[in-house]
Design a protein around this nucleic acid. Structure first.
Lengths: 249, 249
DNA sequence: CAGGTTTCTGCGTTTTTTTGCAGGAATTGC
DNA sequence: GCAATTCCTGCAAAAAAACGCAGAAACCTG
């Protein structure tokens, strides 16, 4: 078999099945593994395939990604996310809501972290999937197209069965008097369930959203264990929360 | 034998078999390898053939083997998808697997269609979410990072609770004798459940995957109701499936 | 047709390409 | 951490290609 022919066969197989194992290829074509490896390497250099340990993947399959278009206040959100990752330890079960702050958190996870992350938000789940070690559990149910998360009784029931160690909530509005509030009824139902199930509730909020109120109530301040903002913990605007017994980071 | 005669013979052989070996040519025509090599070189310079180490290939060989589209065989997959959408009617519950063929189906859905689509594949779900009217139900569970779908007992249990009207399966390999086969154990478990639950099972497969076999069995041909390929239904390669009682489109 | 020129062909040698193998390093999974 | 793969590096053998050359054939051309 000629070299080009072999490479054409390999490429064909990759495109057909989205992946190939070097071991199976070398028995199929009946050449040494080194030859296969060199072929895969050449094809990878030409950009035809993606070489991975033990074989190769089709390029078209890996193209699912989310645009990182101008997230509002990204800098502050990154600061919040970096404080938040400090709370996550190996082996923990972590439940998260959706939202851009949580997206930022997902991007900040240290590569060596081994934990289990649970969410119903599609964009967040996509971000978790890029991480090498974390387990990702997706809450299923009807999808709310505008918030891009799963909502409904099935999702709520599933959350109530769990007892995650941490629950990170991206917030729309938080106020020392009214607690966390939001404007989407279905999302609020979900967040209520998340708070109820979790051992520790961590609220992520940029300073702008502090002391703002939305129509639907999620929970009171007494249900929040930790509040993370981009501000230093001693900031005056945060003192009402400290007084309410919340740990502010 | 004259030079022109020889080159005509070589060209004929290349077009006939898509490849020639210089070694076999030089015994057939009974000239030295150098002569053959010079002939091949001339033909290559004229663009009639593609010279490779050890022989030559026809140009058509190279074209079919190295597609330039993003998704492999996208044209064929679109043809399949367009046949498939014809089966979907307003109000139906449709369960789908993952894969690029299903992705194509998702993109082909007519904008005025009102139906409910259920899947555990993240890329496919993203595609459904762009549609203005369809309801999207996401099957939740642990996410398999390489296949980008939810797998596990929760997902299977959820599927078994449903009774969708249609089930579209993207296939990795299908054969009249062995039925549908695949190479990922967890995905196979899921597909089995999907087949079991659904009123009608529709198998989408590009012709290339017909009569190929993978290590793990999903189901036999008797479980398939409809088979859709890019070929016309009367094609000879499809007759074994027609004889097995499958409706071929 | 004779002589010169060009083209073609085969041979020996050198160079390049390809392939497999052995070892040590890196990685993956348990 | 340990065992098992898998990967990389250098190396050597085999195959193929390139090169130079010379004899032979074909082809002008007067």
């Amino acid at each position: 078999m000629l070299k080009k022919e072999r490479q054409a066969y390999i490429l064909h197989q990759v495109n057909l099945h989205n992946k190939v194992l070097s071991s199976s290829l070398c028995t199929e074509i009946n050449v040494s593994e080194d030859t296969i490896r060199r072929d895969l390497q050449e094809l990878a250099e030409e950009g035809k395939i993606i070489k991975v340990h033990g074989g190769a993947l089709s390029h078209s399959f890996n193209e699912v990604s989310f645009p990182v278009n101008g997230v509002y206040s990204q800098h502050q959100k990154r600061a919040i996310a970096q404080k938040a990752v400090g709370l996550i330890q190996n082996g923990m079960f972590v439940l998260t809501s959706g939202g851009t702050t949580i997206m930022e958190l997902a991007r900040c996870l240290p590569p060596q972290l081994r934990a289990t992350f649970i969410s119903g938000s599609i964009p967040v789940i996509l971000e978790y999937m890029h991480h090498p070690h974390i387990e990702v559990i997706l809450i299923g149910d009807k999808i709310s197209k505008n918030s891009k998360i799963t909502v409904g009784s099935e999702a709520i029931a599933k959350i109530k069965q769990m007892k995650p160690d941490l629950c990170f909530l991206g917030t729309n509005a938080i106020d020392a008097e009214h607690g966390i509030t939001d404007n989407d009824w279905e999302v609020v139902q979900l967040k209520k369930a998340m708070i109820e199930s979790s051992k520790k509730v961590i609220c992520l909020s940029i300073a702008e959203k502090i002391n703002t109120v939305q129509p639907i109530r999620v929970c009171g301040v007494q249900d929040i264990d930790i509040l993370i903002t981009e501000l230093p913990p001693g900031s005056p605007s945060l003192s009402p929360f400290v007084e309410a017994g919340i740990r502010v980071i």
